[in-house]
C-alpha cells in the first residue's frame, strides 16, 4: 500500500461557505514563510487546526482574524476580501489569542465589560451571562491578577464569545484548563459550531475527537490534509499496528518507526506503530485512533 493510495474520499461541500482562503501566503520580513500557498473553503462547523510547533497555525489564525495581512492570496468572508474590508468580518468575529493575558488590576467583570464595549456590546446582563457560562460569576468582582492560568483562559473564552460571533477563532484554547473545564469548553465549541464557524488550534488530539467536523493538518506552513474525522480515520486504516518489542531492540526500532504510543512491561515495550506496511514480523493490525491518523497524515500525507 502506498501513501498515494490512502486517499480520503472528498468531503462534502460545506452547507454555506463562510470563509474562503485562496493561495494564502505569509512571508515575514526576515524571509520566514509562515504560511505557504494555502487554500481552503470553510462553512459552518468546527475546524480543528492540527500541526507541530512552527507549522503556521497561529499565523494563519491571525490572518483570518484580520490581525495581519497575507503577503499573497486572498481571504474572503462571503464575497468580501477581508484584507480590504476587515470590518465586515470583525463585526461578527470572536478571537482568543494564544497565551491570552489580562490586565492584573481589573476585576473579571471590569475586564469583560471592557472587551464587550470595544465590540459594541453594552448590555450588563450579557457580560454576566458570559461569566456564568465560563463559571466565573462567583469571582466576578475579584482582581484577575490573582486568577489561576485556567481562570484567565476562561475569561479569554468569555471575551471571545461575548459578541455572539458567527466566526470564532481560538488558538490553543484548552491550554491550562483542567479536565472538567476542557470538557465544558469542548461542549461550548460544539454547540456554537452547530450553526457557525469555529476554527481552533490545538496540540491535544483528544480535544478535537468529539467536536471537530473537519480537521486541517499543517506542516511547515503548508496544508497537508483536510478531512472530516471519520475520513481521517479511514485514511489511516490498515496502517496502524501493535507489537511487543523486546526492550533491547526498542531504541533501535523507535528511531526507525513512527510510534504513536508505548507502554513498557518487564522485558518488552508494547508499542503502537503507524506505518503503511507491516513494520515488524510480530505486528498486528489494529483500528486507528485520531492520534494515529494525525501522525499518519504528518508522516505520509493525506490528499484532500
Amino acid at each position: 500500500m502506498t501513501p498515494e493510495s490512502l486517499v480520503a474520499p472528498p468531503i462534502a461541500a460545506p452547507p454555506a461557505v463562510a470563509l474562503t482562503l485562496e493561495g494564502v501566503t505569509k512571508r515575514f520580513r526576515n524571509g520566514v514563510v509562515a504560511v505557504n500557498d494555502l487554500s481552503l473553503s470553510l462553512g459552518t462547523g468546527v475546524l480543528a487546526l492540527l500541526g507541530p510547533n512552527g507549522a503556521g497555525k497561529t499565523t494563519l489564525m491571525q490572518m483570518i482574524a484580520t490581525i495581519t495581512r497575507p503577503t499573497a492570496g486572498r481571504i474572503r468572508f462571503g464575497d468580501v476580501d477581508i484584507a480590504r474590508e476587515p470590518d465586515v468580518l470583525r463585526r461578527t468575529l470572536g478571537y482568543l489569542p494564544q497565551d491570552f493575558g489580562v490586565y492584573d488590576g481589573l476585576t473579571a467583570l471590569e475586564l469583560l465589560t471592557y472587551f464587550a464595549a470595544l465590540k459594541g456590546i453594552h448590555s450588563r446582563s450579557r457580560v454576566h451571562e458570559m461569566l456564568e457560562l465560563v463559571n466565573l460569576h462567583s469571582v466576578a468582582d475579584r482582581a484577575v491578577g490573582g486568577f489561576s492560568g485556567g481562570m484567565k483562559q476562561r475569561l479569554g473564552i468569555a471575551q471571545a464569545l461575548i459578541n455572539d460571533p458567527a466566526v470564532l477563532i481560538v488558538d490553543e484554547p484548552t491550554a491550562g484548563l483542567d479536565p472538567e473545564e476542557r470538557l465544558r469548553f469542548r461542549n461550548i465549541l460544539s454547540d456554537i459550531g452547530f450553526d457557525r464557524l469555529v476554527i481552533f488550534s490545538t496540540h491535544i488530539v483528544s480535544d478535537i475527537e468529539s467536536i471537530a467536523t473537519e480537521i486541517a493538518v499543517m506542516k511547515s506552513g503548508r496544508l497537508i490534509a483536510t478531512a472530516a474525522p471519520p475520513d481521517f480515520l479511514r485514511a489511516a486504516a490498515g496502517s496502524v499496528w501493535e507489537a511487543s518489542i523486546p526492550l533491547a531492540r526498542f531504541e533501535e526500532e523507535r528511531k526507525r518507526l513512527r510510534i504513536s504510543r508505548s507502554v513498557r512491561t518487564d522485558d518488552s515495550v508494547h508499542a503502537r506503530v503507524v506505518h503503511p506496511e507491516r513494520p515488524l514480523e510480530e505486528a498486528t493490525l489494529v483500528e486507528p485512533e485520531l492520534e494515529d491518523a494525525f501522525i499518519y497524515a504528518l508522516t505520509f500525507g493525506v490528499a484532500r
Partner: peptide, 25 residues
C-alpha cells in the same frame, strides 16, 4: 449577528480611556 445597540466611536474611546485610568490606579 450583532448584540447590543449603539456603538459609537466616542463611546469606544471613552471605554479605552476609562479602563486605562482604572488599570493605572
Amino acid at each position: 449577528m450583532t448584540v447590543g445597540a449603539r456603538d459609537t466611536a466616542s463611546r469606544r474611546i471613552l471605554t479605552i480611556a476609562g479602563t486605562d485610568v482604572r488599570m493605572r490606579l
